[in-house]
Design a protein around this nucleic acid. Structure first.
Length: 492
RNA sequence: GGCGGCGUAGCCAAGAGGCCUAAGGCGACGGUUUGCAAAACCGUUAUUCGCCGGUUCGAAUCCGGCCGCCGCCUCCA
């Protein structure tokens, strides 16, 4: 049984078969870089990160393209629509490109911390103006577009399949919609391919229709076909982009190329806060930097970036996730449990005896792996996949409690932690800091001195003093644990 | 107004006709362990899946109605 994915285009789960044997081209709608990334971005990009990781786990050769939108994304589609980057740049008194650069770096920084693999190509919209103009020319030539006063619009009535992705009928949906229609458009549903720029507009390029800038939908069509071909295997993005963004991409691409644009459309659901969508325009978002540092009124503490990742993987990518501090707190606890177990297994491996592997355990582990793969094959059921990781934790703890456990057996568990938890889910790290996350050596040594003093007191059965030392350390956020191998410490 | 989705324990969340007398995590409670803790381990924590009907030998899963919530139709991951 191979991988099945839910295709928004057909509204059902389908067996995944790439166009070219063994090679997968995947394009994911990237961020518009006019602000720091928030938890909503994390849900989308972690979801598709796991898809890419799993495809690679299945030995596909994957080319992963994710754009950076640095021009053309308007606040709305009416005449007053302003470029989001230009608006933000004015507010921050920066050049739009400086702003884009700043937030692009911020974005990559956050994604790195979430342990998302970098896309193979991160194309910028501004770097593909020439190609975008070419596509507009093609669409004009083929009669799918028209020019008005230096702007070019796509004529939706010329493209019969318009609405096939989102299941909409253009005429019906206009009845109650609150669209402020640009008088330049022939039909309200027509969308801008190229917009005329006024002389004082900073972001503008020369074109056959005069100075202007590209419409937002254009970049994804152009960049995906440039790097992945006219027909791509997978296109991912947030559910809110299904209409109109993806619908427009299909129209432009298929009108220009005459072939199917995307074979599998994947859409992730939203993160909500108090059951309301978390969005930049709603101003109810928590940025990733705030989640990692705890600097937000809704958060009771700082969170490990991988705990945020785990929270996202705890639910299905097509389900909405209602955010709360309690849910994130739970994810953090669970994440720590996995982490501590992995560390304990690796530590034990250095001292355990060499000999044969436990056959019964090997069989159980094999079943765990099969369960994991079956879950992932079923439209990336990361919730069940994650539960398998907790099964591994239980099995590992059992091995750790048994003094006869061999290196060979421990290694079997460790390999699964690495491959399933690390390679695919991205919540198990290859390496962890040696001690209790000390930020410097002096700190490390200082705590050791105190531990020594406490242990002296304990040996003298002066438990009042011992407990006082432990309590004082606890007050400043250092937890002591007395284990068979001696006293260890960690933060929080 | 049009289109789509959701409602499972205190919280998060899988399950989509019989393997469900419903995974997993968090939390809580009891026990083992410990000088006491912490960590770990063992156990308990939904006879029931928003409500009401129907189909079926059998429904959390299918159908209808109702209630509640959300998304898209305008920028948004």
């Amino acid at each position: 049984m191979g991988l099945k994915l839910y295709n928004s285009l057909t509204r059902r789960k389908e067996e995944f078969k790439p166009l070219k044997e063994g090679w997968v081209g995947i394009y994911v709608c990237g961020p518009t870089v006019y602000g720091h990334a928030h938890l909503g971005h994390a849900k989308s990009y972690v979801s598709f990160d796991v898809l890419v990781r799993y495809l690679r786990y299945l030995r596909y050769n994957v080319t992963y393209v994710q754009n950076i939108t640095d021009v053309g994304h308007l606040t709305d589609d009416a005449d007053e629509g302003e470029d989001k980057l230009v608006v933000a740049a004015k507010k921050e008194r920066k050049h739009p490109m400086a702003l884009a650069e700043y937030y692009t770096r911020s974005y990559f920084e956050d994604m790195d911390r979430l342990n998302c693999v970098r896309p193979d190509i991160s194309p910028r919209a501004t770097g593909h103006i020439i190609e975008q103009i070419e596509l507009v020319k093609t669409l004009l030539k083929k009669g799918y577009a028209y020019e008005v006063n230096g702007s070019v619009y796509f004529d939706v009535s010329k493209f019969e399949d318009y609405g096939k992705l989102s299941g909409r009928n253009v005429d019906e949906m206009l009845a109650g919609a609150r669209v402020e229609v640009s008088p330049e458009k022939r039909k309200p549903a027509d969308f801008a391919l190229w917009k005329r720029a006024e002389p004082n507009h900073i972001m503008q390029w020369p074109s056959p229709w005069g100075p202007g800038f590209p419409g937002w939908h254009l970049e994804c069509s152009v960049m995906s076909m440039k790097y992945l071909g006219k027909t791509i295997d997978i296109h991912g993005g947030g559910l809110e982009n299904q209409f109109p963004h993806h619908e427009c991409e299909i129209a432009q691409s298929e009108a220009a190329n005459g072939v199917q644009f995307v074979r599998y459309w994947l859409h992730n659901n939203m993160i909500t806060v108090d059951s309301q969508k978390m969005g930049k325009s709603l101003d109810n978002f928590i940025t990733l930097k705030q989640a990692f540092s705890g600097a937000h009124e809704r958060l009771t503490r700082s969170y490990d970036p991988l705990a945020v990742r785990q929270l996202i993987l705890n639910s299905h990518y097509r389900s909405p996730l209602d955010f709360s501090d309690a849910a994130l707190f739970a994810a953090q606890s669970g994440f720590q449990k996995i982490t501590e177990t992995v560390k304990a297994v690796r530590k034990r491996m250095s001292t355990a005896s060499e000999s044969q592997v436990d056959k019964e355990m090997a069989e159980q582990l094999k079943q765990s792996r099969e369960k994991f793969e079956a879950a992932m094959n079923d439209d990336l059921n990361t919730s069940v996949a994650l539960s398998v990781l907790f099964e591994l934790v239980r099995l590992a703890q059992k091995l750790l409690d048994d003094s006869s456990t061999t290196v060979g057996t421990l290694n079997l568990v460790n390999v699964l932690f690495d491959r399933l938890g690390g390679e695919v889910l991205g919540i198990v790290r290859d390496e962890y800091p040696q001690t209790g996350l000390a930020d410097d050596e002096t700190m490390d040594k200082l705590v050791d001195v105190l531990i020594q003093q406490r242990n002296e007191a304990r040996n003298n059965r002066d438990f009042d003093k011992a407990d006082e030392l432990r309590d004082k350390l606890s007050e400043i956020g250092i937890v002591l644990e007395d284990t068979l191998g001696g006293t260890e410490w960690r933060r929080k």
